Simulated assay, not measured.
Amino acid sequence: MFKEQVQRLNRTTFKKTNFKAFFFFFIFALLIWLLIQFSKTYTKEISVPIQFTEIPKDKIVNKTKGTIKIRVTENGFGLAWLSIRNPKIISSLEDLSVTENNITFLTETQETEILSKLRVNFDKVHFITKKINIPFIQKETKKIPVVPIIDVSYAPGYNSDEKLEIQPDSIKISGAKKILDSIKFISTQKITLKEVSSNQNGKVKIDTAEYSNVTYYQNEIAYQLKAKKFTEGRLNIPIEILNAPEDATVSIFPKEVIVIYTVSLDSFEEVSKNDFLVICDFNDLSENQNFLIPKIKKKPSNVTATRLNINKVQFVLKR
C-alpha cells in the first residue's frame, strides 16, 4: 500500500516537472524567434489619416478628412511602434495652395511635418500619395457697416461732446449672393452703460442671430466713449426775422431770447453769442396765429443740448 503511493507521487511529480520545463523552453524559443523576426527589415505600405482644419471663411468645404499612403522601410520594432502610436496629421486649409476649384495638399511641401509626426527618417520613407485635392465652393463676400446698440446714461453733470467710436466700423461677411444683397448693415448685441462719469471702453459682440446662414469674419468690435464734466451756460441772443411782409414794418417782443445750453467745462470759454442764431419765420405762421415761434437755427458743434427760455414771440405789423 505504502509502496504504491510512493510510486504514484513520483509519476505525478515527474509529469509536472516535464510540463514546466517544456513551457519554459517554448516561451524562450518564441522570444528568440520574435527578436529575430522583429530585427529584420521590412517594407510596408501604411495609411496615415489627415484632418483638415481652419476652413477659409469665404469657402464651403465638405471634405475635411483624407489619407496619405506611405511606403516605409523599417525593422519590425519600428513598424510595431508606428502601428501602436497610430499617428494623425493635422493640416490647416488656410496654409494650403488654392487653385480654381480645389485647395491642394502637396506632400512634398509638408514632408518635414509629416515625418516629425511619424518619427521616422526621411530616407526610410517614400510618399505614394503626392497630393490631396479638397474641392470647395467659393462664397460671395461683402463688407457691411456695423451699428452699435449701446444705451448710455450719464451721471448728473456728465456728458460727451463726441460720438461713440467703434473699431472697426465695418466687417466682412460671406455667403450666398442673394442673402448678402439683402443685408445693408449689421448690429451689435445690446449693452447698457449706466451712470457714466468717466471714459468707457470695451468690446461688444456682433449680433449674428438675424443672419445665421452667413459667415462673419469678425465676431466682436471694440468701442470707446469719452465722458466729460459738463456745465450749463446762458446767453442773450437777438432774434432774426425771416420772410416778413414787404408792405409792413414788424415789431417784436421780446427782441432777444435766452439760449440755455450744455457744454463741457473744457469748451465753456470757447462758446460766444456769435455761435448761435435764433430766428422767427413768418412762413411758419398759421392762420389766425398772433405770435411767432422762435427756433435755434445755428449752434456750435461742441454744445450738446439747447433750449430757449420762451416759446412765443409777440409781433405787431405797422403798415
Rank of each mutant, 00 (worst) to 15 (best):
V98D: 07
E113P: 03
I70W: 05
Y42V: 05
V61W: 00
K124C: 10
R85D: 11
P294W: 00
N10M: 05
D58S: 02
P156N: 11
F268M: 06
N236M: 14
Y217E: 05
F23E: 12
L308E: 11
I89D: 07
I103D: 09
I206V: 07
D207S: 10
Q189T: 02
E256C: 01
E45A: 07
N290C: 05
N243D: 02
F52N: 00
F38T: 00
L115Y: 09
Q314D: 14
P135H: 04
N213A: 05
F282P: 00
F19W: 12
T109Q: 13
D275K: 03
A227D: 02
W33H: 11
I149Q: 14
K16V: 01
P294N: 01
I191P: 08
L34N: 08
I252C: 15
S212Q: 03
I103P: 00
Q218H: 04
F291D: 09
G66M: 02
T13P: 08
E232Y: 04
E54V: 01
I114S: 05
S91M: 14
L285T: 01
I46R: 02
K69I: 10
K40F: 09
S174L: 01
M1I: 06
D181E: 09
N302T: 09
K312A: 13
L93S: 07
T262F: 08
L82R: 11
F24E: 04
R71H: 00
V6S: 05
L164P: 09
S264D: 06
V250A: 04
I171E: 10
T306I: 06
D284C: 09
T306M: 11
S39K: 02
Q37C: 12
F14P: 07
D169R: 10
E54Q: 09
A305S: 14
I132E: 01
F24V: 10
Y223S: 00
S197I: 05
L193K: 02
N243W: 05
G202V: 03
M1Y: 06
I89Y: 06
I90A: 14
Q5N: 02
L285P: 06
A80L: 15
F19V: 12
D58P: 01
E165W: 09
K117R: 10
E54M: 06
K88I: 15
